[in-house]
Design a protein around this nucleic acid. Sequence first.
DNA 1: GTCTATACTTCGATAGAC
DNA 2: GTCTATCGAAGTATAGAC
Lengths: 201, 201
Amino acid sequence: MAERRIGAASSASRAKLVRAAEALLISEGYAAVTSRKVAAAADLKPQLVHYYFRSMDDLYIEVFRWRAEQALEHLDEVLSSPTPLTDLWRFSNDPNWIALSVEFTALANHRKNIRSEIARYAELFRERQMEVMASALDRVGFDRDEISPMIALVLMNALSRILAMEAGLGVESGHAETQEWVAGWLRKIEPGGAEQRVEPG
Amino acid sequence: MAERRIGAASSASRAKLVRAAEALLISEGYAAVTSRKVAAAADLKPQLVHYYFRSMDDLYIEVFRWRAEQALEHLDEVLSSPTPLTDLWRFSNDPNWIALSVEFTALANHRKNIRSEIARYAELFRERQMEVMASALDRVGFDRDEISPMIALVLMNALSRILAMEAGLGVESGHAETQEWVAGWLRKIEPGGAEQRVEPG
DNA sequence: GTCTATACTTCGATAGAC
DNA sequence: GTCTATCGAAGTATAGAC
């Protein structure tokens, strides 16, 4: 049978749908991202979702790609920041980004297409962030045999994500103490970033 | 209007539904946990789900409570283990537990009832795990001013969860190195647990 | 290229039979 | 106390009009 026609990638309606879907994903979760709700939020007819996207999964993937590309560009800026690690820490703490991550992780666990797309970008992120971490540690003169940039990166990433996720749930035990510990390290490595530190919690 | 009647908590059918729902949650995600699919997996009629649970959310919460209570009991056993930290690390790495965590975290972000239930248990877990961590560090004679048990706990928890989540997605950069780093610490603190270490990845 | 009318599937939930 | 018959709402997706 003939393939159903798909709307142009440059369409304004299409872009509206992607942005509406992202907002819904963050505020209500992937199960609430239905063709009807997305269309309503974009002020369009539900059937348009299926005209511009072959399936709902395709729409999810488009949302992810759009945001991931934005994040990669942001990482490029961070790389030339005077306080890259502090910026990196704050970036991983962004509530919207965390909410999206949770949704996509859940989705990815059960949809092969989405999983491979996320894995691809996750490797890109780690690669890009490694440049940031390695150059930051080098600049302060840390010995690579004592503190591995990769381990430091994975650690920082894990901490920021879990702290943000827990904070979103209202779990706070140990957060203040851990945030202060991280802040101490950041002050040591990037004295300039200290005063712009985000409040813990 | 009169409240709909709800089946007895001791019912065998009810228990079958909870277990079927958990299996579905892990294998297909919360969006796939519908009354019809749960009933089919439990070999019961779909309407029974609504007889035993006021809503689907109530069923999700019941699944969570059941598994969380099991986890708390497990933590009690770990507390008296010769290698508590190694056990804790392995526990947080359990793929089924991680999959459930991801699903419930996503659910909790958008459902107040579920969120408060998860937050409640998360605090209980941290409390119980703090006993494990503090006693383990004390036993080896670590100085609490140099290494805080709470920070060590949050760190270990964050690492194990993120590593397991990423591994589930197929993301592996830096994992071997980080796993080995953790294993090194565990060997230092719990020499007995080294040879039973789980393979990284 | 863009959008609408419509098909038909599956959902949560309740009222009522046993 | 247990289970079934059934409803109305909501879901994805396609075929066809403009």
